[in-house]
Write a protein that binds this DNA or RNA. Sequence first.
DNA 1: AAACTATTTGGTAAATTCGCCAAATAGAAA
DNA 2: TTTCTATTTGGCGAATTTACCAAATAGTTT
Lengths: 97, 97
Amino acid sequence: MNKEIEKEFLEKAEIFKALSHPTRLFIIHAVKDESMSVKELTELVGVDISTMSKHLDILKRNRIIEGQKVKNFIYYKLAIPCVLEFMNCAVKIINKR
Amino acid sequence: MNKEIEKEFLEKAEIFKALSHPTRLFIIHAVKDESMSVKELTELVGVDISTMSKHLDILKRNRIIEGQKVKNFIYYKLAIPCVLEFMNCAVKIINKR
DNA sequence: AAACTATTTGGTAAATTCGCCAAATAGAAA
DNA sequence: TTTCTATTTGGCGAATTTACCAAATAGTTT
């Protein structure tokens, strides 16, 4: 496989990897309409806050969500609406099983 | 997080996980228009044939590709065209970086 | 300044993923 | 039947991921 092509698929795989954890999919669902703080998301999911912070970091580094600082809080929201279309396709696949 | 909701996101994450490897994305690209055998794909990618067989198994178990047996060969092809739309969104994300 | 709150970072153990090799299967061809 | 070819399976070590805890940061409030 060509080096150029290989890099292209490597980059795309990074995006899918960022989306391949249930907590991160839940985050996307939660912040698609309204932005939420790390603490709010932490309480919704029921996980350690450091764990949540790391999940958010993965989504942020991949430009899937973006955060806005207000006082002590950082409010995250979905940055790439098209990831929601991914979900519809995923549902189609799941329903075939 | 509700048990029902949790299961839903767990299932969706499985799909993304199946797509989160460069070789598996390459496979999808290769078999979107024409079906190919395990051996052909192996030679294109340059990996051990047992490794390729396992990648194909992951995609097959998730109903993303499907195989048809002809003589000794198994020809795989894309089963869910909507995954290609995923890619377009991924490219948008990559181009933002 | 001191106390408090939200978030991030570093570290560690457990679980998962990945690639290769060797061996097993399945079926075709000789 | 024996030999070949294509594919799958099992196993192992290396690398990656994940969750929690503890500690560090950053910025507010008192």
